[in-house]
């Protein structure tokens, strides 16, 4: 909730900081000098019209795209050149707009993959089925079941993801990200395809998360964004055009101008959000 009592996040040092990020795809300047910082337990919204560069920013944040300029810092330390799995290992998790569930394994196994970074058993204990390995499996399974339970989808643990309705699959993807117990969670359009009611439940979930971790949220549903975000960064044509609390951003003339003619609140037909990810 972006109430006055939550605002003093500003005193804390940022968890994650992107400064002066530049990304080019051939002739297209996808990001140009973009900077933003995420504070502990902050929900930081990233909004902007289609093609503004939001997904590209996420791709930079989790190591899929290497920027031509700028720096990324995690708790003040530079993160240059780390690969996606290494960033995940630090505690950065992300959900994909395209879900990216593992289709041939069960929902529980999907979530257990997310929990894998908490596993301790190595190759040899797996090979010989040592007690260490089964203890590991048990812990990962319990962690995963807990998260599935928290998200209200424990009943689907044994199911194949493809057999489930879209909103449930979205929750599975969220569970897989959450079970890693990240310090920073990047949510790419988590509300797309959800009903009003499901969206409000999602709002509750995000608010609950912000008591423990930081969240970056790309979302087109302004009701949700305005409700859960502490601060918002607005992108247009790869540049930051506004920053501030939801109230400030809503009144910003530059934002109003950028969105003029864009039917933002009901824009579900966003393409390219996963650009470059499934290459």
């Amino acid at each position: 909730m972006s109430t006055a009592t939550d605002a003093p996040h500003s005193a804390a040092a940022p968890v994650f900081e992107l400064s002066d990020i530049g990304v080019r795809f051939g002739g297209i300047v996808a990001l140009d000098g973009v900077g933003l910082d995420v504070r502990p337990r902050e929900v930081h919204g990233v909004i902007g019209p289609n093609g503004a560069g939001k997904t590209t920013l996420f791709n930079v944040a989790c190591g899929f795209v290497t920027p031509v300029q700028g720096t990324i810092a995690w708790h003040g330390k530079p993160l240059d050149g780390l690969r996606p799995h290494q960033l995940a290992g630090l505690g950065i998790a992300r959900t994909l707009q395209g879900l990216g569930l593992f289709d041939k394994i069960s929902v529980l196994d999907n979530v257990m993959v997310g929990a894998d970074r908490h596993g301790r058993a190595g190759f040899w204990s797996g090979l010989l089925a040592l007690p260490r390995s089964s203890r590991d499996e048990r812990t990962l399974r319990e962690r995963s079941m807990t998260v599935l339970d928290e998200l209200g989808i424990a009943d689907y643990a044994g199911r194949a993801p493809a057999s489930l309705p879209y909103p449930i699959r979205k929750r599975v993807a969220l569970a897989r990200a959450l079970v890693a117990e990240p310090e920073l969670l990047l949510l790419d359009e988590p509300a797309s395809g959800l009903s009003e009611e499901e969206m409000s439940e999602l709002g509750d979930i995000i608010e609950g998360l912000s008591e423990r971790i930081s969240v970056m949220l790309v979302e087109h549903h302004m009701d949700l964004v305005m409700r859960v975000c502490d601060r918002i960064t607005v992108l247009d044509f790869g540049k930051v055009i506004a920053k501030g609390t939801p109230a400030e951003v809503r009144e910003d003339p530059a934002v109003l101008a950028a969105y003029l003619g864009n039917e933002v609140t009901h824009d579900d037909s966003v393409h390219g959000l996963n650009g470059g990810e499934n290459a």
């Binding site: 995940a88 290992g89 593992f102 394994i105 204990s125 897989r176």
Partner: peptide, 21 residues
């Protein structure tokens, strides 16, 4: 074991697997 599950994950979706660490 864990590694078997990770193999399946990598097989099913590389991008999601690397995001999972």
């Amino acid at each position: 074991s864990r590694i078997g599950r990770r193999w399946r994950a990598v097989r099913d979706d590389e991008v999601a697997a690397s995001l999972a660490g």
